[in-house]
Design a binder for these strands. Structure first.
Lengths: 332, 332
DNA sequence: GGAGAATCCGTAAACGTTTTCGAGTATAGT
DNA sequence: ACTATACTCGAAAACGTTTACGGATTCTCC
């Protein structure tokens, strides 16, 4: 029912090919006829059909974003949501469109769907399996992993400097004279987890500090779980004077436990979060946190993907973006 | 390069048409040949091409989500992010794919892009203009507005019960004996703003309370702006005993100002937020807030859109989902 | 004014599917 | 055994574009 290129051809008096050229390479058609064509197109309210176009160009100018949902929605969490926002902006600026889909443990159809839909490239965030990656590879579709890494060669990924981030946080605390520094490690993907964990160990060692393993624990990264855990911890004797948390939700939980226990923050206990998410500005006192440049991560991800889509071979396979400790009210 | 239906035809020894049927209506093809076809398809690693398919069926099974970004990204904010999460899940369950795009004041190409991409339907969130809506209508593409409304007939939208939400909050406060109840009104779209504002006025009147207009003010809905405003307010004499905020960020700002002013919450001041976002659980004490069922809003939005896509005429044009006051630590 | 180059545009094939229609074969009923 | 019915499948057209190729027109320059 909507007007096609053929209709425009009819009313403007030119051929299909010319109409097509008028829209895709206007400089190759005489200004006079261009004008007539555009007039006809406007009159008919013609919109080019990207599907038909993709049919022959073999390029949809669509890319996919797949995110793995552990149990709770993750695209709305304060770490991934800003990254996604950055990604939609970056793709929009390049006149690409973005599909977004989420996979769960029980249903992971997104990869297959994206393949059918003929995306030009794919961003996979948080987690995935080799099967998914290989299925894209077999069709020659570029993939970049976001905040994930696995043992597979020719892998392109954008990572945050997990190691540097917690290392610098520990160093900061050590520098301020803290001896008993606890670590609350979120149960993230093994890759993230182990890098952050190792950084803690290394940094402590570097400063001649001995971790008290009663206070380095793994925890589900929710406010509630962290609260319960820290609530317990604070009962112990020789409790830590500083707590490093591997994300902000954990830190919030810790902070709440401390406040309810009547501690004065940061005098009695320093707390440092991770991600520098929006949560940091809502607590009182506000949360010191390790900033991961989420905007930059999103930007770099699509930049990298675009290079690959355009047939270039990126110089770097693994890009890690730096972190920065943002000091606020919960640390001393 | 990737295998097409024709390749499968060749190696399986059947015709294009039969391969097509094997994938779209398997029950119409003899089990024996189905088996051979599937075997050939697997061997060739064949993936149906949704683009070519859409070409002839005139259905892409894609829908679009357009959101208007005021200045800061809004899809990552604690109100819209969960709605989006709900929408991607609901569309996924229906085997549809979701485009997501954002428009700003300076660039609003999303509508045009979605048209080119031949989406089967569109969700427009937060704000838009009649031009955009009409352009979809002209092509016969269903549109549902999310959290927005305008003066145009045959409009389908999903709204939250703004009026009921603040009305009940005021009533609650009045019921607890508060007389001097302030209102901090976020500068949202006029439609939302006015409904919430009116509800406040009406509810106050119903309980014979006189608004003190020093304490009903408009504010940019950010923690910082609300903080500054409330910081001022608290200096006034006869300051309010309760503050109703039209979103949670405002409430957080108010809470911080109160805490820093040395007030005891909720003894000296009750604060109620709006949206019941994730922010509510991070403050100490935790934030009483009016819950808008974000999950339900997302779900209903795609449900409504799907009805329209499938040619049904929904019985209701405007669906408003209810709210519920969630009591926590900042109110008394 | 005429040869050569440059510019502009039309013809037709191609992209990978779905779907109508009818041909052929198997099944059933008498 | 014969007809009617059901089942299974293939031929071919169609969807709305892009693009190589070549033909026609115009331009340039002597």
């Amino acid at each position: 029912m909507p007007a096609t290129i053929l209709d425009v051809a009819k009313v403007s008096g030119f051929s299909k090919s010319t109409i097509s050229r008028a829209f895709t390479e206007p400089e190759t058609v005489k200004p006079y006829t261009l004008e007539k064509i555009l007039w006809a197109a406007k009159k008919l309210d013609y919109t080019p059909n990207a599907v038909a176009r993709a049919m022959i160009t073999k390029r949809t100018e669509n890319i996919g974003f797949i995110i793995y949902e552990r149990q709770k929605p993750v695209i709305s969490n304060p770490f991934y949501a800003p990254i996604l926002a950055s990604i939609v902006q970056a793709t929009g600026e390049r006149d690409y469109s973005l599909f977004i889909a989420s996979d769960t443990d029980i249903r992971l159809p997104s990869g297959e769907t994206m393949l059918r839909k003929q995306v030009d490239g794919v961003i996979i965030a948080s987690q995935t399996d080799t099967g998914t990656i290989l299925s894209f590879r077999k069709k020659g579709i570029p993939v970049v992993l976001l905040n994930y890494h696995m043992d597979l060669d020719d892998l392109y990924c954008i990572l945050s400097d997990d190691y540097g981030g917690v290392f610098s946080a520990v160093e900061y605390l050590a520098g301020r004279g803290h001896k008993n520094i606890g670590l609350l490690s979120g149960k993230f993907t093994p890759f993230i987890y182990s890098r952050r964990h190792k950084a803690y160990i290394d940094a402590m060692a570097k400063h001649g500090l001995q971790p008290d393993y009663r206070f380095v624990q793994d925890v589900e990264p929710t406010i509630r779980d962290a609260y319960d855990l820290v609530h317990e911890m604070l009962m112990s004797e020789n409790r830590p004077t500083a707590l490093l948390c591997t994300n902000d939700s954990i830190a919030v939980g810790a902070l709440k436990a401390a406040i309810r226990a009547g501690l004065s923050i940061p005098r009695d206990l320093s707390i440092i979060g991770y991600d520098n998410s929006d949560l940091c500005m809502v607590t009182e006192p506000e949360l010191t946190s390790v900033d991961t440049d989420k905007n930059e991560m999103g930007r770099l991800t699509v930049e990298q993907l675009m290079k690959m889509i355009n047939g270039k071979v990126p110089e770097e396979r693994i890009i890690t973006v730096g972190t920065k400790l943002i000091l606020r009210g919960t640390s001393d």
